[in-house]
C-alpha cells in the first residue's frame, strides 16, 4: 500500500474518536435535561457542570481529530 494512502486511511480512522465525543456530549445534555425536567429547581446549580462536562467530552474527541490533522498536514 502507498504510504500516502495509509496516511489518509489513518486520518479517517483517527476521526472515529469523534463518535465517542458525540455520544458523550449527547449523553451529558440528555442527562441534564432529564434531571432538569425532574427537578427544575436544581437545574440552575448544575448548569456550570454541564458546560464543563461538554467541554471535557468535546476535547476528548478533538484529540482524535488532532491526530487526523497531524497525519494529513504534516
Amino acid at each position: 500500500m502507498d504510504a500516502e494512502a495509509a496516511k489518509l486511511i489513518g486520518a479517517g480512522l483517527a476521526c472515529s474518536a469523534l463518535i465517542g465525543a458525540g455520544i458523550g456530549i449527547g449523553n451529558i445534555f440528555g442527562s441534564f435535561l432529564q434531571g432538569a425536567l425532574r427537578n427544575p429547581a436544581a437545574a440552575d446549580k448544575e448548569r456550570g457542570f454541564v458546560y464543563i462536562g461538554f467541554a471535557l467530552a468535546e476535547a476528548t474527541g478533538l484529540f482524535g481529530l488532532l491526530i487526523a490533522l497531524l497525519l494529513l498536514f504534516r
Binding site: A55, L56, E58, A59, L62, F63, L65, L66, L69
Partner: peptide, 16 residues
C-alpha cells in the same frame, strides 16, 4: 498535557 492539548486542540480544530 491534557490541560494544554485540550485548549490547543479546540482552538486549532475549530479554526481549521
Amino acid at each position: 498535557i491534557t490541560l494544554s492539548v485540550r485548549l490547543f486542540a479546540n482552538m486549532m480544530a475549530g479554526h481549521t
